[in-house]
Amino acid sequence: MNAMTAPSLMQPAANTPPVHDAYSLTKGGGMAQILLDGKIYQLRITRAGKLILTK
């Protein structure tokens, strides 16, 4: 990522969805819990750098 693209990733335009860094969500670890409508989901970063979301 270069200096020209960094601000656009951190501050998306009003008509685009928000961008969240997966490593920030997991606080540098490999897993985070996400709450939706009273249900907890697991977000996991695999060794291959892929994301898996499970109930």
Rank of each mutant, 00 (worst) to 15 (best):
M1S: 15
N2L: 04
A3R: 13
A3L: 12
M4Q: 04
M4Y: 02
M4V: 08
M4R: 13
A6I: 14
A6S: 15
S8E: 05
S8P: 03
S8C: 13
L9S: 13
L9R: 02
L9G: 09
L9H: 11
L9Q: 03
L9F: 13
M10S: 08
M10T: 11
Q11C: 12
Q11K: 12
Q11P: 07
P12F: 00
P12T: 03
P12Y: 02
P12R: 03
P12K: 03
A13L: 15
A13M: 12
A14N: 09
A14D: 13
N15M: 03
N15P: 06
T16E: 12
T16S: 13
P17M: 05
P18V: 03
P18C: 05
V19L: 15
H20C: 14
H20L: 15
H20T: 01
H20G: 11
D21T: 02
A22S: 14
A22T: 01
Y23I: 11
Y23W: 08
S24V: 11
L25F: 00
L25R: 06
T26E: 03
T26W: 00
K27I: 01
K27M: 13
G28I: 08
G28L: 05
G29E: 01
G29K: 08
G29R: 05
G30H: 15
G30V: 02
M31T: 07
M31K: 13
M31Y: 07
M31F: 05
A32K: 04
A32R: 00
A32V: 02
A32N: 06
Q33L: 12
I34G: 04
L35C: 04
L36A: 12
L36W: 04
L36R: 14
D37V: 05
D37T: 11
G38L: 03
G38T: 10
G38K: 04
K39F: 01
K39C: 11
I40R: 05
Y41Q: 00
Q42L: 08
Q42T: 02
L43R: 00
L43A: 06
R44V: 07
R44E: 00
R44F: 08
I45R: 00
I45H: 06
T46I: 09
T46S: 15
R47Q: 10
R47E: 15
R47M: 15
R47V: 11
A48N: 10
G49S: 06
G49H: 12
K50L: 12
L51G: 10
L51T: 04
I52R: 09
L53C: 09
L53Q: 03
T54R: 04
T54E: 02
T54M: 10
T54G: 12
K55W: 06
K55M: 12
K55I: 02
K55D: 02
K55F: 08
